[in-house]
């Protein structure tokens, strides 16, 4: 048994950063693998996204047909169609809805196992979520975008920087969205059950992230307030606006920078909340 028995751990001395990166990478991969297990759910989810894509697209195109100059909120028809279909694809990438894993683990007390690992929970959940998002890009994103391309005229980006900025914006949307969801789930530390906050989140995020309609349809003072005072437009509206080139390049870069600030703020907040929670934590059950 001696070999199973203890030996002082050697934790890659001298290369802590690289070791951390390897750990993070392994956690990302685990997130990817966990979602890759459920193929039927992936197919069913894509199908739903596509059906709702048609609904949303026709509604917005009808709005466009009735608007002055066929440009509601400054979007032309191609931009609107792109907004809808890429948005449908991004839904599963940012994973805005339906994540209750942390809240469930708090409620059942399984959170104890997370605390017994040498990696802080915010880091391990973030890594796993990035893996989930990567899985989303490869499976759930492509379906709606391809269907959109087949049935509607979509925008082709004109500026060279649009695609890299879009990729960055999506990454920040994923991180920001994770931060929001972590905080919503973390209310379970105090409430035992996060279903109430989660319902509020589902309602609020759909409206205020620009899923149900582009936020630009709202009065300007309101859109500006939403953008600056809440992280929500950064979860969906910003990456889509970047892709359809709704604004001049400088403003687009500014919006992405705003996303970045919110992402950092949310992760920091998640860390603080987690630390607070650990201090008062009651692990449920024997």
């Amino acid at each position: 048994m001696d070999r199973i028995g203890a030996s002082v751990l050697t934790i890659s001395p001298g290369r802590p950063f690289r070791a951390s990166l390897t750990t993070f990478g392994a956690l990302v991969w685990s997130g990817f693998r966990r979602y890759a297990t459920y193929r039927q759910a992936t197919i069913a989810g894509s199908f739903t996204n596509i059906v709702f894509g048609f609904l949303r697209c026709y509604v917005l195109l009808a709005v466009a047909a009735g608007a002055v100059g066929n440009r509601p909120a400054g979007y032309d028809v191609e931009q609107l169609a792109t907004y809808v279909w890429v948005g449908q694809g991004l839904l599963a990438v940012t994973g805005m809805w339906g994540w209750a894993e942390l809240a469930d683990r708090i409620r059942t007390g399984d959170i104890a196992s997370d605390l017994l690992r040498p990696v802080p929970p915010v880091v391990s959940y973030l890594a796993a979520d990035l893996g989930r998002a990567l899985h989303g890009v490869l499976t759930r994103f492509l379906g709606p975008v391809l269907v959109g391309l087949l049935f509607f005229p979509l925008v082709t980006p004109q500026r060279w920087q649009t695609v890299p900025l879009f990729v960055l914006s999506v990454l920040l949307a994923v991180v920001g969205c994770f931060g929001c969801r972590f905080l919503i789930n973390a209310t379970a530390y105090w409430l035992q059950d996060a279903r109430g906050p989660q319902m509020l989140w589902t309602l609020g995020s759909g409206v205020l992230a620009g899923l149900y309609f582009p936020l630009r349809l709202l009065p300007e003072w309101l859109t500006v307030t939403l953008w600056v005072a809440t992280p929500l437009p950064g979860l969906l509206q910003t990456p889509l606006d970047v892709l359809v080139e709704r604004d001049p390049p400088a403003l687009q870069a500014g919006l992405v920078a705003l996303q970045a600030i919110w992402a950092v703020l949310l992760i920091w907040l998640a860390t603080v909340v987690q630390r607070r929670a650990e201090r008062k934590l009651v692990v449920q059950g024997g």
């Binding site: 750990t23 392994a26 956690l27 297990t37 399984d110 196992s113 690992r117």
Partner: peptide, 22 residues
């Protein structure tokens, strides 16, 4: 309780733990 990942094969859970504990 379980400290293993519900959706992952056992062997993969072990591999992940190797990286977590370095």
């Amino acid at each position: 309780r379980s400290q293993l990942w519900w959706d992952l094969p056992l062997g993969e859970s072990f591999r992940l733990l190797r990286h977590i504990y370095r």
